[in-house]
């Protein structure tokens, strides 16, 4: 029973995104981002918000449209 590769590719991509988000939100990278900005405040919240927005954007892209090649299967 051959199944289309599309959903499984999407699942794999989502899994990769999940791992990326996990890494982005976790200590080693968070510690790197924890340094003062020009104004004196830490860049940590800014980094988190940007990483968060990036993850959401990627998720929306993957879930709603997905890369072009997927249409060709």
């Amino acid at each position: 029973m051959p199944r289309t590769t599309k959903p499984s590719r999407r699942r794999e991509r989502l899994l990769a995104l999940l791992l990326l988000a996990l890494v982005l939100f976790s200590p080693p990278l968070v510690m790197i981002a924890d340094r003062p900005l020009g104004g004196g405040l830490s860049a940590l919240p800014l980094y988190l918000l940007l990483a968060w927005a990036l993850v959401i954007g990627l998720a929306a892209w993957l879930l709603e449209g997905g890369p072009r090649e997927e249409d060709q299967g």
């Binding site: 699942r11 989502l14 999940l18 988000a21 996990l22 940590l44 919240p45 988190l48 968060w52």
Partner: peptide
């Protein structure tokens, strides 16, 4: 507690990303 309030929402973000699983 600084930026840690965001964690309470980053956790659910991870959970929603894992929704297909």
């Amino acid at each position: 507690q600084g930026a840690s309030f965001l964690l309470i929402y980053l956790g659910p973000t991870l959970a929603m990303l894992s929704a297909p699983f």
